[in-house]
């Protein structure tokens, strides 16, 4: 199950989208989330759809992989559709079967809203599929830089994010190890009544906490020994580079915004 989830997974490929600056990608996503609400008729939805699939095509992420990973989410989309179908009671009555009544507006709203939901999911997964978590962090740090003026701890936040990213695999390995040690001592994680299972988690969680605290402490010492004393006067090794493709993509999205604005009813 977890293996097939694609949320937050990076799929390496050699594409224009992969090479884009995370800043432009973040900006595009942000703008996209706003302008998708401009769409309110067939033409505008079609435009958004074309744009989304155009971007997907550019990213070279295998469709099969995308389909497999999004399957669980598609159920949610379907659920939204059904909800709208049954509960919107406007427009002409199209269909009636006992207590079930479906109206014209219900069909329209159902399709539009679930499409909007679907496109949003596609575009946001596109971001995580084509951008490594650390790039996203870098992008966020630079974009949020102005917030430093209002004392928002941008650097600290970015460092925290990157350290968490760095330690996720380590903690996964650790979890697996402790779990096995406790199974060998007779703990059953996967069977028994719910209450027992909750109890079984304690011998896993406590050692995990203890070791995480120890790690945190040692890491802090190591960082200090290597001269870390806050964001002041620090230079950055990772560099973001804004290229022509980034400007082009931003331009494309602005064009889309204008078109949506003109074509909406």
């Amino acid at each position: 199950m977890m293996e097939k989830m694609i949320f937050g997974r990076y799929v390496p490929a050699d594409s224009i989208i992969h090479k884009m600056d995370p800043r432009s990608k973040l900006m595009i996503i942000f703008l996209f989330v706003c302008i998708i609400f401009l769409a309110n008729n067939v033409v505008t939805y079609a435009l958004i759809g074309i744009y989304t699939f155009f971007m997907l095509g550019l990213s070279k992420v295998p469709v099969r992989f995308l389909y497999g990973g999004l399957k669980p989410v598609l159920w949610l989309v379907l659920f939204t559709l059904v909800l709208q179908l049954f509960f919107t009671k406007e427009g002409a009555l199209l269909f009636e079967w006992g207590p079930v009544k479906i109206y014209e507006e219900g069909v329209r709203m159902g399709i539009f809203i679930s499409l909007r939901f679907f496109f949003l999911i596609l575009m946001t997964s596109l971001l995580t599929l084509t951008t490594t978590p650390i790039e996203i962090t870098d992008g966020l740090e630079t974009l949020l830089h102005p917030l430093k003026k209002v004392r928002f701890p941008v650097h600290e936040m970015a460092l925290m994010m990157s350290i968490s990213l760095r330690f996720i695999p380590t903690l996964m390995q650790e979890t697996d190890k402790i779990m096995k040690a406790q199974i060998a001592r007779g703990v059953e994680f996967a069977s028994g009544p719910f209450k027992e299972r909750i109890k079984a988690v304690i011998p896993l969680l406590i050692p995990l906490f203890v070791s995480s605290f120890k790690r945190a402490e040692e890491l802090a010492i190591a960082m200090e020994a290597r001269g870390y004393r806050g964001g002041e006067g620090r230079t950055k090794y990772r560099q973001l580079s804004w290229q022509r493709a980034d400007s082009f993509q931003i331009g494309l999205l602005i064009l889309l915004t204008i078109l949506l604005y003109l074509l909406r009813s």
Partner: peptide, 30 residues
Amino acid sequence: RQRVGIVFQFPEHQLFEETVEKDIIFGPLN
């Protein structure tokens, strides 16, 4: 598993109980 005991590398990472006694009897009780 009761008949085959494993001492893992760095076994102290598996300790979790409040007292030494509770931790030692954890396996047998299970």
